[in-house]
Design a protein around this nucleic acid. Sequence first.
DNA 1: CGTCTGTCGATTGTCGACAATCGACACAAT
DNA 2: ATTGTGTCGATTGTCGACAATCGACAGACG
Lengths: 228, 228
Amino acid sequence: MKDTNSLLNQINNKPLRERILDILRDAIVSGDLKPGQTLVETELAARFGVSRAPLREALQILNNEGLVETIPYHGTTVRRLTRTDIEELYSLRSVLETFAVRRIIAHNSAENIEVLRKLYDDMLAAAEAGDLALVNSIDRAFHDTLLELSQHSLLLSTWNVVSMRVRQVMALLNRRNSDLRTIAYNHLPIIDAIADNDEERAAALIQKHVAASGDLIAEGWSENGGEP
Amino acid sequence: MKDTNSLLNQINNKPLRERILDILRDAIVSGDLKPGQTLVETELAARFGVSRAPLREALQILNNEGLVETIPYHGTTVRRLTRTDIEELYSLRSVLETFAVRRIIAHNSAENIEVLRKLYDDMLAAAEAGDLALVNSIDRAFHDTLLELSQHSLLLSTWNVVSMRVRQVMALLNRRNSDLRTIAYNHLPIIDAIADNDEERAAALIQKHVAASGDLIAEGWSENGGEP
DNA sequence: CGTCTGTCGATTGTCGACAATCGACACAAT
DNA sequence: ATTGTGTCGATTGTCGACAATCGACAGACG
């Protein structure tokens, strides 16, 4: 076992392509790579110290996920987000999340409610501590958990693609610091409706919840997230 | 312009990866490549007369679409379809298609109805001619059209992935020749509900329509579509 | 002055060779 | 007989070099 360099060898059990993919994806959804920015294979390969092959494969996956756009023989750019994109993103998100909640209620269990309540408590604590990043993180975890609890792997993988892009949108528009506690509070009625097995109420609440944030985002959208 | 070989040069304006992708995808969804079958890169590359690079990229896209499964350093196989897969496939399909219909009704137009009626007429004609393949083809076109008319590109691309796998399922289970006219007839009420702008009725019909065929498929599913 | 044409540079697409990894099998030790 | 171990073969992962393609720009021509 030869550990001359530490960073690369510590998590060395994944193919290069996967590691590069994670790094690039994270850079895009966190807004470090701005929409419209061009990604040159040669450049990136040199920066990561790998050849173009695994890098190309990573870019290809990002392309399939809709995070970048590749024009043959011309280049790859971080995908630009139009207002229409955002509307589509949030409307589909609403549909997927509503479906998930209906399924959770269809085969409900006490543990589900516990898990969700725990997340709510954590979120509220983070909100009262004024920790915006943590609130956002738990917020994501809450919705991811809803999708996981639906026990629908195809739905989950679809969700992962959508939620990643939603995350990108939010990163590009650093969420206004509306009262953090309000963000947390908004999740409680949803948990209650699920606990009550009230499918219609839960569905309506989710739709309202998602539509609200979607409208908020679309409203303050300036159509160009990067340089022209 | 040197046309020594004909087949490759005729449609030469797309990257190799795309052409290979189309061929492989078609082979999978049409059932020529059976679930569980292993796809060896070297072998396929030789058969297509290309190097492994574009072939790998094609396989990667198929992997993202869920049509094949790649185990690192071990191999790629056509993904097996379990009963759970089929239930997930049809339940998500129902959700997506319902959403599409709701959107169509939300901004309806007379042309939409015309397009759908035209497809229905063609399907009926094919049914009366006893042309199973054509009926199936128009059936697919009908549902694809619903998704296109919804004017939601993200929904459409999600649909494309799902519908491809649905198509594979149907190919593996060569649809029993229940009366073809019945298949056609089933689509008429949906068109009528859309024409009437009756969102709830259309949504209910779509759900019933998809659930019916989903149950039919899942019922007669033998769990192993390929060799063990 | 406008338009067509050809060359150039940058980037992606493709190739063939080599390295890394994993499961299976044989074989030895207990 | 069982368990551990090492080697081997098959397959994917990675690399560096070369080819193909496209847009932009310059220059000739009307």
